[in-house]
């Protein structure tokens, strides 16, 4: 099991008191699986993604990624763990604005220092059809190109798990379809994909859809 969340709880201090963002959620995603998490705004989707990404420790319950509890690691070891095992894709792309496409894709290699990163980055950029944009900065790219660059960055260190938070939210249908295709390809190659989305069409690309409501698992259906 690449992602294994068991009875995880997470609360926030809101303006009107404590808010239970994730309330005893259990979720497992195996290698080769593409799972979508759907639910209304504020239902805890993004919090669950952060829990699964080793970025937000649960107050109770457990999180295992690739068989290891990232929250049992030191902060720096957890960072390295993320670099080695998890790829992130966000709705806002979160590309570094002053770096070229190539440098953005290479950014995770600062953490790992892995040799051959440059070659792999160029291959990914080629694979995502951005070879002609190699030295362009994000400001010079279209939304679809930016998200593809973000996808390439997420894949640089060959992660086992891909976490995508509304990756198609800012894309047109064509680009959204292409991004979802790449996520499916990742899963087909043996990776685990956890996609958080409002978009039913995007969720439909997943093999399994999980619904969250008020921080709780509502229902799960096979796509």
């Amino acid at each position: 099991m690449l992602v294994d969340i068991q009875d995880a709880k997470k609360t926030y201090q809101g303006a009107s008191g404590q808010v239970l963002a994730v309330d005893g959620v259990s979720l497992s995603v195996d290698g080769g699986e593409f799972v979508a998490v759907q639910g209304p705004s504020g239902c805890g989707k993004s919090t669950m993604l952060l829990l699964a990404g080793g970025l937000l420790a649960p107050e109770s319950g457990s999180v295992q990624i690739a068989g290891e509890d990232p929250y049992a690691l030191t902060a720096d070891a957890r960072s390295k763990f993320r670099a080695d095992n998890i790829g992130f894709v966000f709705q806002q792309f979160h590309l570094v604005p002053y770096l070229s496409v190539l440098d953005n894709v290479l950014a995770p290699s600062i953490a790992t220092g892995s040799p051959g990163a440059d070659q792999r980055a160029r291959e990914l950029i080629d694979q995502f059809g951005l070879s002609h944009r190699l030295e362009h900065t994000p400001g010079e790219l279209s939304s679809g190109e930016r998200q593809r660059a973000a996808l390439a960055r997420a894949l640089l260190n060959e992660p086992k798990v891909m976490l995508a938070d509304e990756p198609t939210g800012n894309l047109d249908t064509e680009n959204a379809t292409e991004v979802l295709k790449h996520l499916r390809d990742f899963a087909s190659a043996g990776g685990a994909v956890l996609l958080v989305t409002h978009d039913a069409q995007a969720a439909a690309a997943a093999a399994r859809v999980i619904h969250l409501r008020d921080g709780k698992l509502d229902t799960a259906t096979e796509a």
Binding site: R82, F90, H94, A111, A154
Partner: peptide, 16 residues
């Protein structure tokens, strides 16, 4: 701020 967040998310340590 955003850049720091994403760099930390993709694996850079606090020391980096």
């Amino acid at each position: 701020n955003s850049e720091i967040g994403i760099l930390r998310a993709i694996g850079l340590s606090s020391n980096q």
